[in-house]
Design a protein around this nucleic acid. Structure first.
Length: 154
DNA sequence: GCCAACGTTGGC
DNA sequence: GCCAACGTTGGC
C-alpha cells in the first residue's frame, strides 16, 4: 500500500508556483486521462499521502516541490465541459469516467533535475525513471521518498 | 522538431 | 479477442 506518489504536471499548465499561489495552496488535480493513473487516485490515494510534484515536458524536468493528498477523489469536472481540452464526450454525470483529487502544497523545493535523479543510485528503482515510462502518476516507496528528500537538502 | 515507447481504438 | 493503425507522452 503506497503512501507516496510522484505526480507529473506540465508547468505551462500547472506549476509548483501555481500551487503555491492557489487559494489555501490547494488545487484539484484534473485532466488525468489514463486508466492506471486514475485508478491510483480513485482506489489507493489517502488524505495525507506524500506527493513529489514533478515538472514534465519543459526545459528543466524534475521534482519541483513536495505536496500531499488533501481530499477524497471525486468526478473530474473537466470531463463534462465541452470547452475543455479534457472534455470526454463519453462521460456523463451518471457515469463519470475520470476523477480528480485535491493536492496541497507542503513546500516548494529546489528543482531536483531529472538528470540528477537518474545519476542517483538510490533512485534507480523509481518507476518514473523506468525506460519508456509515461504514467503521469507513479507510486514512490518510502525508501525512494527519503532518498529524494535527502537529495533535495543538498 | 524528432522519435521511441506506450495506450487506445476499432475493424475483423 | 486479436492486432494494426493511430494518437500521445515526454526527454532530448
Amino acid at each position: 500500500m503506497p503512501r507516496y506518489w510522484l505526480m507529473k504536471s506540465e508547468p505551462s499548465e500547472v506549476s509548483i508556483d501555481d500551487l503555491e499561489s492557489a487559494v489555501g495552496q490547494v488545487l484539484p488535480w484534473t485532466g488525468v486521462r489514463n486508466y492506471q493513473a486514475r485508478n491510483f487516485m480513485r482506489d489507493e490515494m489517502r488524505v495525507g499521502d506524500g506527493v513529489l510534484f514533478y515538472h514534465s515536458s519543459c526545459a528543466e524536468p524534475g521534482v519541483a516541490g513536495l505536496a500531499r493528498i488533501a481530499g477524497k477523489p471525486c468526478a473530474d469536472e473537466t470531463q463534462f465541459d465541452p470547452s475543455s481540452d479534457y472534455h470526454d464526450p463519453k462521460a456523463t454525470a451518471d457515469k463519470p469516467r475520470w476523477v480528480q483529487i485535491d493536492v496541497a502544497l507542503t513546500r516548494k523545493t529546489r528543482l531536483l533535475p531529472l538528470r540528477e535523479m537518474r545519476a542517483a543510485p538510490e533512485l534507480a528503482t523509481m518507476r518514473v525513471l523506468a525506460p519508456g515510462n509515461r504514467l503521469s502518476i507513479t507510486p514512490v516507496t518510502p525508501e525512494e521518498w527519503r532518498a529524494v528528500n535527502r537529495l533535495l537538502c543538498r
